[in-house]
Amino acid sequence: MTKLTTEPIDVSGLMAEVSDMGHGGQALFVGTVRDEHEGRRVTAVTYEAFEPLAAAVLSQIARDASRAHGAKVAVVHRLGKLPAGQASVAIAASSAHRAQAFSACRDIIEEIKKQLPVWKKEHYEDGESAWLAGCELAAER
């Protein structure tokens, strides 16, 4: 299960998505909006996506991690303006043993950083805002 949403992330619901009696390990990664960046006080971050491609890429990232680690995975990424402290992304994974679940979560967040067409605009307490730098997209073949 993967989803882009403007609603707050239901972490318990995400864990339920990967629940499996045959899986002895469950891992959860939650990324949140930091209230500081390079010495500036951050009040909120706006997340924007090219949604059709982002949905396809997120689904592919999850499939790849699931296959590579034999894990069940579920991923939700927020869009819209989030105040500092709110969850922007959550990844749940379960597997027979803990190592695969941890690895699946790690792989997914790293690939999100590299591949997902999402952009962040930070809003600062002085009223200014700025788009953050990122990773150049590379076409897959």
Binding site: P52, K113, W119, A133, A138, A139, E140
Partner: peptide
Amino acid sequence: TENSVLRSADPLPDSARLAALPPVCGG
């Protein structure tokens, strides 16, 4: 396009939705 990132040498698809995407920073 809605389905893929285009390489520089790729022909522009005739009818697809097109977007210009800066470096990404999700998460």
